[in-house]
Amino acid sequence: MQPVGLDVLCIGSVLWDVIGRSAAVMRVGSDVPGRITRLPGGVALNIGMMLARFGMRPALLSCIGRDRQGDELVAACGTLGLDTRLVYRSDDLPTDRYMAIEGANGLIAAIADAHSLEAAGARILRPFEDGRLASPYRGLVALDGNLTLALLSEIADSPVFAGADLRVAPASPGKADRLRPLIGHPGVTLYVNLEEAGLLCQVDFPDAASAAEGVVARGAARAVVTDGGRTAAEATRGAQTLTGAPPPVMVTRVTGAGDTFMAAHMAAEARGASRHEALAEALQRAAIYVSGDIGP
């Protein structure tokens, strides 16, 4: 039986983000002053953290090491309103990390060390096998593309998730192709940017609307496509495609913006918002986030 109070599962990367930020424009080889911070991160954690801020009750399914960094991360998750009771704690795998450099001109470079999550594989899904979670699961799931292709394929084909409301983020353009097994899932919504949509469909799309329609044409039930500060779109099979423009803001950070957008969209729909209202709210929340007006 699932934990009391749970209303969304966040499956994927839960790790420490080490982010270096500078107000300077940067290029390869730049050596500039700035700030370096360590924060709880990972796609699943970031989405869960924002869902909690938007009034939902998320639980994490991931791998966290039984090392000092892992203990600190579990404690930090608790303060953020994230339920970690279902997380797989490994004795032999270290806690994962992500490192990024951001300048005034955006993300300069990033390295994701999520090898432990990949090594843990299907072990993170044990709560569905031992009775801690309902099986089949018919609730809301936020799924990130940091999982291995094999595990994503297993989730796509598993009767456990056949009736779930799967909301999927690709994690990065380099992992967009991992999402292909999920395209045919009847309850899938793919949240991708314009580049990721193009990689997923192997097409150069001119804008978010054509990209969202292209992903749906490939078999997805629904696709939500963003394009930085330009027009975003939501396409649903059998319905009119929606578009919306984010409000113009001064960009002070980019890491986590897509996760904020996705979480805001999910939370709005969970409250009963219409498709149009949910897209507008997600764009507004993401703009506020990148402007630095809410916490990291």
Rank of each mutant, 00 (worst) to 15 (best):
Q2R: 15
I11E: 14
G12W: 10
D17C: 04
A24W: 05
D31G: 04
P33S: 09
G34M: 10
R38S: 13
L39A: 02
V43C: 03
V43F: 02
N46T: 05
I47N: 00
M56Q: 14
L61V: 10
R68F: 01
L73Y: 13
L73I: 14
A76L: 09
L80V: 03
G81I: 06
R89A: 02
P94Q: 05
T95Q: 09
M99G: 00
E102Y: 05
G106T: 08
I108T: 11
D113F: 11
G121T: 06
A122P: 00
R123E: 15
A134Y: 09
Y137C: 06
Y137T: 01
G139Q: 05
L140T: 00
L143F: 02
N146Y: 11
A150S: 08
L151I: 09
D157A: 15
F161Y: 03
A162F: 03
G163T: 04
A164F: 02
D165L: 02
A169C: 14
G174T: 02
D177E: 14
I183W: 01
I183R: 08
G184H: 05
E195D: 03
L200W: 00
Q202R: 09
V203R: 12
V203H: 11
P206M: 06
S210H: 04
V215S: 07
V216H: 08
G228L: 07
R230W: 00
T252N: 10
V254Y: 08
V254P: 15
T255P: 00
D259C: 11
D259E: 13
A270H: 09
A273N: 03
L283S: 14
A286M: 15
S291G: 14
G295R: 09
